[in-house]
Amino acid sequence: MDIQDVIRQQVTSNPVVLYMKGTPQFPQCGFSAAAVQILKRCGVSAIAAVNVLEDDAIRQGIKEFSNWPTIPQLYIGGEFIGGSDIMREMFESGELQQLLADAGVVKSAG
Protein backbone atom coordinates (compact mmCIF):
# COMPACT_ATOMS: atom_id res chain seq x y z
CA MET A 1 0.00 0.00 0.00
CA ASP A 2 1.31 3.42 -0.97
CA ILE A 3 1.91 5.96 1.85
CA GLN A 4 -0.85 8.24 0.52
CA ASP A 5 -3.29 5.32 0.81
CA VAL A 6 -2.12 4.67 4.38
CA ILE A 7 -2.70 8.34 5.30
CA ARG A 8 -6.08 8.42 3.53
CA GLN A 9 -7.12 5.33 5.49
CA GLN A 10 -5.97 6.91 8.79
CA VAL A 11 -7.88 10.16 8.24
CA THR A 12 -11.06 8.48 7.03
CA SER A 13 -11.26 5.71 9.65
CA ASN A 14 -10.89 8.02 12.68
CA PRO A 15 -13.14 11.02 13.45
CA VAL A 16 -10.17 13.09 14.71
CA VAL A 17 -6.57 12.52 13.63
CA LEU A 18 -3.64 14.64 14.75
CA TYR A 19 -0.34 14.20 12.93
CA MET A 20 2.18 15.43 15.47
CA LYS A 21 5.73 15.24 16.74
CA GLY A 22 5.60 12.89 19.70
CA THR A 23 2.45 11.60 21.40
CA PRO A 24 -0.41 13.34 23.23
CA GLN A 25 1.20 12.21 26.50
CA PHE A 26 4.71 13.30 25.46
CA PRO A 27 4.64 15.94 22.70
CA GLN A 28 8.07 16.55 21.16
CA CYS A 29 7.48 20.15 20.09
CA GLY A 30 5.60 23.19 21.35
CA PHE A 31 3.22 23.35 18.41
CA SER A 32 2.21 19.70 18.86
CA ALA A 33 1.76 20.29 22.60
CA ALA A 34 -0.46 23.31 21.87
CA ALA A 35 -2.55 21.29 19.40
CA VAL A 36 -3.13 18.54 21.99
CA GLN A 37 -4.10 21.11 24.65
CA ILE A 38 -6.60 22.78 22.31
CA LEU A 39 -8.26 19.44 21.54
CA LYS A 40 -8.39 18.57 25.26
CA ARG A 41 -9.94 21.98 26.03
CA CYS A 42 -12.59 21.19 23.39
CA GLY A 43 -13.41 18.00 25.29
CA VAL A 44 -11.79 15.49 22.93
CA SER A 45 -10.80 12.53 25.07
CA ALA A 46 -9.60 10.09 22.42
CA ILE A 47 -7.15 11.62 19.96
CA ALA A 48 -5.97 9.35 17.17
CA ALA A 49 -2.42 10.69 17.10
CA VAL A 50 0.20 9.74 14.56
CA ASN A 51 3.78 10.38 15.67
CA VAL A 52 5.56 11.55 12.51
CA LEU A 53 8.94 11.16 14.23
CA GLU A 54 8.51 7.38 14.13
CA ASP A 55 8.03 7.16 10.36
CA ASP A 56 9.83 9.32 7.78
CA ALA A 57 7.46 8.16 5.02
CA ILE A 58 4.45 9.44 7.00
CA ARG A 59 6.32 12.61 7.98
CA GLN A 60 6.96 13.49 4.33
CA GLY A 61 3.78 11.92 2.99
CA ILE A 62 1.42 13.93 5.19
CA LYS A 63 2.92 17.19 3.89
CA GLU A 64 2.21 16.06 0.33
CA PHE A 65 -1.23 14.69 1.25
CA SER A 66 -2.43 18.03 2.67
CA ASN A 67 -0.16 20.27 0.61
CA TRP A 68 0.73 21.85 3.97
CA PRO A 69 4.43 22.13 4.94
CA THR A 70 4.30 21.91 8.73
CA ILE A 71 3.41 19.53 11.56
CA PRO A 72 1.08 19.28 13.49
CA GLN A 73 -1.85 18.74 11.17
CA LEU A 74 -5.41 18.17 12.32
CA TYR A 75 -8.05 16.20 10.42
CA ILE A 76 -11.71 16.06 11.47
CA GLY A 77 -14.09 13.78 9.62
CA GLY A 78 -11.49 13.13 6.95
CA GLU A 79 -11.04 16.86 6.22
CA PHE A 80 -7.77 18.73 6.70
CA ILE A 81 -8.32 21.55 9.22
CA GLY A 82 -4.85 23.04 9.68
CA GLY A 83 -1.97 23.39 12.09
CA SER A 84 -1.79 24.71 15.65
CA ASP A 85 -2.18 28.41 14.72
CA ILE A 86 -5.34 27.72 12.72
CA MET A 87 -6.60 25.44 15.49
CA ARG A 88 -6.05 28.23 18.04
CA GLU A 89 -7.93 30.78 15.92
CA MET A 90 -10.80 28.35 15.31
CA PHE A 91 -10.92 27.45 19.02
CA GLU A 92 -11.10 31.13 20.03
CA SER A 93 -13.96 31.75 17.57
CA GLY A 94 -15.83 28.58 18.62
CA GLU A 95 -15.57 27.15 15.11
CA LEU A 96 -13.38 24.20 16.16
CA GLN A 97 -15.79 23.15 18.91
CA GLN A 98 -18.64 23.25 16.37
CA LEU A 99 -16.71 21.11 13.87
CA LEU A 100 -15.95 18.56 16.60
CA ALA A 101 -19.61 18.54 17.70
CA ASP A 102 -20.76 18.12 14.08
CA ALA A 103 -18.37 15.17 13.73
CA GLY A 104 -19.93 13.62 16.84
CA VAL A 105 -16.67 13.74 18.77
CA VAL A 106 -17.80 16.09 21.54
CA LYS A 107 -21.15 17.25 22.85
CA SER A 108 -22.43 20.44 21.28
CA ALA A 109 -21.72 23.58 23.31
CA GLY A 110 -25.16 24.93 22.42
Score class of each variant (00 low, 15 high):
Met1Ala: 14
Met1Asn: 08
Asp2Ala: 11
Asp2Val: 01
Asp2His: 04
Gln4Gly: 08
Gln4His: 04
Asp5Gly: 14
Val6Lys: 09
Ile7Leu: 01
Ile7His: 00
Arg8Leu: 02
Arg8Cys: 05
Arg8Glu: 12
Val11Phe: 03
Thr12Gly: 04
Thr12Val: 10
Ser13Cys: 06
Pro15Val: 03
Val16Gly: 04
Val17Arg: 11
Val17Phe: 03
Tyr19Ala: 10
Tyr19Val: 05
Met20Thr: 07
Met20Gln: 10
Lys21Asp: 09
Gln25Val: 07
Gln25His: 04
Phe26Leu: 13
Phe26Pro: 00
Pro27Phe: 07
Gln28Met: 11
Cys29Gln: 12
Gly30Gln: 11
Ala34Asn: 13
Val36Phe: 05
Ile38Asp: 02
Leu39Ala: 13
Lys40Cys: 04
Cys42Ile: 04
Ser45Tyr: 04
Ile47Trp: 01
Ala49Tyr: 00
Val50Lys: 00
Val50Glu: 01
Asn51Gln: 13
Val52Asp: 02
Val52Pro: 00
Leu53Pro: 09
Leu53Glu: 10
Asp55Tyr: 02
Gly61Ser: 14
Ile62Leu: 08
Glu64Val: 11
Glu64Gln: 14
Phe65Ala: 02
Phe65Asp: 00
Phe65Lys: 06
Asn67Lys: 03
Trp68Met: 15
Thr70Ile: 07
Ile71Cys: 12
Pro72Phe: 10
Gln73Val: 03
Leu74Thr: 07
Leu74Ser: 04
Ile76Asp: 08
Phe80Asp: 09
Phe80Met: 14
Phe80Pro: 07
Gly82Ala: 07
Gly82Glu: 08
Gly82Thr: 12
Gly83Asn: 08
Gly83Ala: 03
Ser84Pro: 07
Asp85Leu: 02
Ile86Tyr: 12
Ile86Gln: 07
Arg88Leu: 15
Arg88Ala: 09
Glu89Tyr: 01
Glu89Ala: 08
Met90Gln: 15
Met90Ile: 05
Met90Ala: 11
Phe91Tyr: 15
Glu92Tyr: 01
Ser93Asn: 08
Glu95Phe: 03
Leu96Asn: 05
Leu96Trp: 05
Leu96Ile: 00
Gln97Phe: 04
Leu99Trp: 07
Ala101Asn: 09
Gly104Met: 15
Val105Leu: 12
Val105Gly: 02
Val105Lys: 02
Val105Ile: 13
Val106Arg: 01
Val106Cys: 08
Lys107Met: 08
Lys107Pro: 12
Lys107Asn: 14
Ser108Ala: 14
Ser108Leu: 13
Ser108Glu: 13
Gly110Val: 10
